[in-house]
């Protein structure tokens, strides 16, 4: 394996494997390959959708490969399966086949290693699957219609969803993630020192795995839920808030729900906040 002559063989093998995986998943309606202006430098991907899912995976290449799959139009508000909507449309479209609408309002721009992908289509569900060079910072946002998934990418990531979960697995760098309805699952292999991070959801759990040598200040507010962790933390006492009211007699003592804890030697702040759910802060094995 050390000899260079075997490398091309290996690469071809990998490519075939990758192709096989792609075809096994689902053939995209459209594939666009976006070359970067400076392939040796880290890239930035900004992708925003109104309806649809975004999946970003790191691969050992220097271009961005954008696969788009469009759902059918109409008011379907399904979550994951395309087949369901197809069945729905069968009544009138029985015996006909659907020609996927190409483009679908997708706009892609590249400038100085920054790739922007956006869809103006709010009535049509879009599935974006983007393969990016390993060192790429992500800014992903979607509103309805599904999950936001990231794997293996290193950079400064900002992930926003509204009705759907967020998962970022085996990522490096920093993550700032929030959604409204859905859970946030993040597993970080490595974090950039001195970067602040934040994980927020309204309905759902937050489950974050961080490197064992973490050194940070954690601010955890589980709302109605609980905090679970296997990190050694120095909890900082929170002062109960005592307020007296001129209108009512007596006073009100409120103990803040937020837990403030130092891990390691302390450092940047990492915020965890869910209003209806629990917090899980795990140590990477």
């Amino acid at each position: 394996m050390n000899r260079p002559t075997t490398l091309p063989t290996l690469l071809i093998g990998l490519l075939l494997l990758a192709a096989a995986t792609v075809s096994a998943q689902q053939a995209p309606d459209q594939r666009l390959v976006v070359p970067l202006s400076n392939p040796s430098e880290p890239a930035v991907l900004e992708a925003s959708l109104v309806r649809g899912t975004i999946t970003v995976e790191a691969y050992d290449g220097s271009e961005m490969i954008i696969d788009t799959t469009h759902g059918s139009g109409g008011e379907d508000d399904d979550e994951e399966s395309e087949s369901e909507t197809d069945e729905e449309g069968r009544g009138r479209a029985a015996g006909l086949r659907r020609i996927p609408s190409v483009g679908g309002g997708l706009v892609i721009e590249e400038s100085d290693n920054r790739v922007e992908v956006s869809s103006e289509s709010w009535h049509r569900r879009v599935q974006l699957r983007i393969q990016v060079p390993r060192r790429t910072s992500l800014r992903l946002a979607t509103v309805n219609g599904g999950a936001l998934r990231v794997s293996g990418v290193e950079g400064e990531h900002e992930l926003q969803n509204t009705n759907g979960g967020i998962s970022a697995i085996d990522v490096r760098g920093s993550v700032v993630a929030n959604t409204t309805n859905g859970e946030v699952v993040v597993k970080m292999l490595d974090i950039t020192p001195d970067k602040a991070m934040s994980f927020t959801t309204w309905n759902g759990d937050i489950d974050v795995t961080l490197p064992g040598d973490l050194s940070a200040v954690l601010l955890m507010n589980p709302g109605r839920g609980d905090v679970y962790t296997d990190f050694d933390m120095k909890l900082q006492p929170t002062k109960p808030k005592i307020e007296t009211s001129s209108k009512r007699k007596g006073y009100k003592v409120e103990v803040k729900q937020e837990v403030r804890a130092t891990v390691g030697a302390g450092g940047p702040e990492i915020h965890f906040r869910t209003f209806n759910g629990s917090l899980y802060v795990r140590k990477l094995d």
Binding site: E156, E158, V176, K195, A196, M197, S198, P268, E269
Partner: peptide, 11 residues
């Protein structure tokens, strides 16, 4: 422009 940096700014 980075959200992480803005979080630090608040801190």
């Amino acid at each position: 422009p980075s959200a992480s940096e803005r979080l630090r700014g608040v801190s």
